[in-house]
């Protein structure tokens, strides 16, 4: 189990996360939902350790978590230049060409081409494949569906479900595509003002959708009729 207890963090004097707490069970996909600027990326960076928490603790099965326990797919991953897709994946798959071939089949990637020539979607798929090949008990996905075509997004959802169940991983995922989150997540936490405002269980997902829609409509009305 991944336990995040009362963490606060931010940049300089700017506090972004404010005593945030969260619990994720092994074998679960946990969704993180929030408006732009709500602190999702700060949250992921804090869990991964790129930002040192000001207070609080993060533990995995009772032990303090380290970077070696986590694979983290950032929103905008980058790669090393002048390498072939295959060479990049081999760094994680080792000599297991089977794993590399498996990912090539799933995502239909041109692994014998230079990464520099890949499209945005291909780069994302390559990064996703590397994240899984990294094989860590906790996986953080910050906006993994951005840039993916419909087929690849569908495949990723399926892979996420299979991986968490079969390999007993803990997956934390943020996305703005609510239908995808509600389909694959065991829980969805709404991040607001640096804290988890509420954690929704599957039977509450219709309420969550309604609330979000209402919220957007209210904001739009305010914008259109400021008086």
């Amino acid at each position: 189990m991944l336990q995040i207890n009362d963490i606060s963090s931010g940049y300089g004097q700017n506090k972004i996360l404010n005593n945030l707490s969260l619990e994720c069970n092994t074998g679960d996909i946990h969704g993180i939902l929030g408006w732009n600027g709500a602190g999702k990326t700060t949250f992921f960076n804090t869990v991964f350790g790129f930002i040192k928490p000001w207070s609080g603790s993060i533990t995995l099965n009772g032990q303090p978590i380290t970077k070696h326990d986590i694979a983290f797919l950032e929103t905008d991953p980058y790669f090393y230049p002048n390498l072939l897709g295959r060479e990049y994946l081999e760094m994680f798959a080792g000599k297991s060409s089977q794993s590399t071939a498996q990912w090539q089949t799933i995502f239909d990637l041109p692994l014998d081409d230079f990464i520099d020539g890949y499209s945005t979607g291909m780069l994302k798929k390559l990064a996703i494949a590397a994240t899984f090949l990294h094989d860590r008990p906790v996986i953080l996905f910050d906006e993994p569906f951005n840039g993916l075509d419909l087929e690849s997004a569908e495949k990723l959802s399926w892979i996420l479900e299979q991986t968490t169940r079969q390999q007993h991983k803990i997956i934390l995922i943020s996305s703005h595509i609510l239908p995808t989150l509600t389909r694959i997540c065991a829980k969805i936490s709404q991040l607001e003002g640096g804290v988890i405002a509420y954690t929704y269980l599957p039977d509450e997902y219709p309420v969550l959708e309604l609330q979000l829609k209402e919220n957007i409509h209210q904001k739009l009305e305010k914008l259109m009729n400021p008086g």
Partner: peptide, 22 residues
Amino acid sequence: QDLSKKITLNWIPVWAFEWKSG
């Protein structure tokens, strides 16, 4: 870059990716 793709660099181990790229 297409020309450099023809250079065989399989003999360089995975850990020396900087050399492959360079």
